[in-house]
Amino acid sequence: MDLSAINPVLLIASLMVAATPLLFAAIGELVVEKSGVLNLGVEGMMIIGAVAGFATAVETGSPMLGFVAAAGAGAALSVLFAILTQYAQANQVASGLSLTLFGLGLSALMGQSYVGIKPPQMPKLDIPVLSDLPVIGPILFGHDPMLYVAIAVIAAVWAVIKFTRIGLVLRAVGENHDAAHALGYKVVRIRIMAILFGGACAGLGGAYISLIRVPQWTEGMTAGIGWIALALVVFASWKPWRVLLGAYLFGGVTVVQLNLQAAGVAIPVEYLAMSPYLITILVLVILSADKSSAPAALGRNFHAAR
């Protein structure tokens, strides 16, 4: 066992990379849940984003186009969820599950000819002087652009929810859809927009895994990150900045356990690999006592009776 091989600066830098898929998926789901909809299909939308982004990046040679395609694919899959829950009045839990099952199958089908291929690389940010600074350079200025986009999305969601009229309407719909409807807000339309946003974000998160974090395509490669993202929203008590905190915490656990595996700690690999899931459960237990911040209409369908 050689713990000295673990470099704290690299650890923090790779923690940020490991956390970014979670960040995208969780902030998208946060918006969806703020509008009062529980979409359990995050895992399915992520994996579709992962394969669509990967395929597009390989075919066009542009990782950026890959991310655009991934957002589109995630949003496209979420349309199915929107139709089921907003128009067909289907149970949200069941619809979300079906989205995940369908997405996992479809991604395996789409990705068949892409197994074992290397995607084009995303250039890393390289700012003269700043990126070369010791310690701060690799942590703050040495990443790929999408990592900063994720943080920017968090900031944007926070600002929109807190300071704008759109955010206020979104929250109203999520807290009490009947009152919002009575005030003349288009509940269904607003929820569909939120679902689409969530789908696009989940797609980006998936593509971040297949294009930057891993980077290659394997079946089922999201390995539960979509579900951890759902747990993260609860952890964050539906507050955007806490999503960032939580994602870095989970990213940290993942990276530390990977480093411990590499360093050959006496704990078997399988037990280390369990740890992110176990810690997710632990965090859920600690935080589930306080449900007061959950949107009041979460998971309830709205049908305007006339």
């Binding site: 199915l80 128009y87 067909a88 599950l97 079906s98 099952l101 479809l106 395996a108 089908l109 068949q112």
Partner: peptide, 24 residues
């Protein structure tokens, strides 16, 4: 491809949930 059948099964649940509209 073996994944096609997985898609097929997923689709089944989709259609079921969608057509359930007619029940209620």
């Amino acid at each position: 491809p073996s994944a096609a059948i997985q898609v097929f099964q997923g689709m089944l649940l989709f259609f079921l949930l969608a057509f359930d509209l007619l029940t209620n």
